[in-house]
Amino acid sequence: MNPIVRNRQIVNGIVLVTATAATLFSLFWLVWILWTTVSQGAAAFAPSLFTKMTPPPGETGGLLNAFFGSAVMILLAVVIGTPIGVMAGTYLAEFSRGSRVAGVIRFINDILLSAPSIVIGLFVYELVVRQVGHFSGYAGGLALAIILLPVVVRTSDEALRLVPNQVREAALALGLPRWKVTTKVVYRAGSTAIITGILLAVARISGETAPLLFTALNNQYWTANLATPMANVPVVIFQYAMSPYDSWHALAWAGALVVTAFVLTLSIVVRLFFRQRTPR
């Protein structure tokens, strides 16, 4: 073989092998981290996880109050963030054709999407906690809502822009007003993609810790009162993992397993069923 061609082939081979190695390298970490989480979490897993409250050091307990708190705050975030996000996405996709403002809003929204979540926590601290004078579940839910919002804006904007104009024309041609066309027809046509976006946003906020550290804080006890500090899984994991107690470490791993399983299952299922990419 011509030596030049051969050299090119060799260089090509080296690069492609390196590229393959890079992929294996990243998969290696994925497997290692997941394996650790599963094995450690499974070892500490017990039904009492879902029936008992977070214990003092050395005693047995579970994470019931933390699961509950997380669920409530995630729900609150969805309730606050989804309508605003879908509305904003509607404006971008439906009512701002070709306008400059839409470009600016998309740009800013994308930045918000990647903004450090700890800064969001600080913001809500300044806005709510400091004004009210104490940490609360409301503040935690609000912080999560701010993280969820740009994801929903982005996905609903894209979902609605994928709805063909013919659908809008057909509905408008029936004499329906624009708002009805949008809410009854266009939303329907884009509903799968919008729901995908919301589910992915939920997956994203489920593991968020930083924004809850100084908004919801934590609570050793059960509370359904959103006006008080509220236990939540990520912050409990953080505090327990950083503690010197083995029993707390075990609970932290069990919590980590549950959160990871929830988030990954949601991500995979959504991807498989709705075949859409994650925005982040």
Partner: peptide, 21 residues
């Protein structure tokens, strides 16, 4: 009035456009 106009003038398009209902 657009709504009035379109209630008087209906339109059928080349491609069928059923709503997702």
């Amino acid at each position: 009035n657009l709504s009035d106009l379109r209630s008087r003038v209906g339109m059928v398009f080349q491609k069928p456009t059923p709503f997702a209902l």
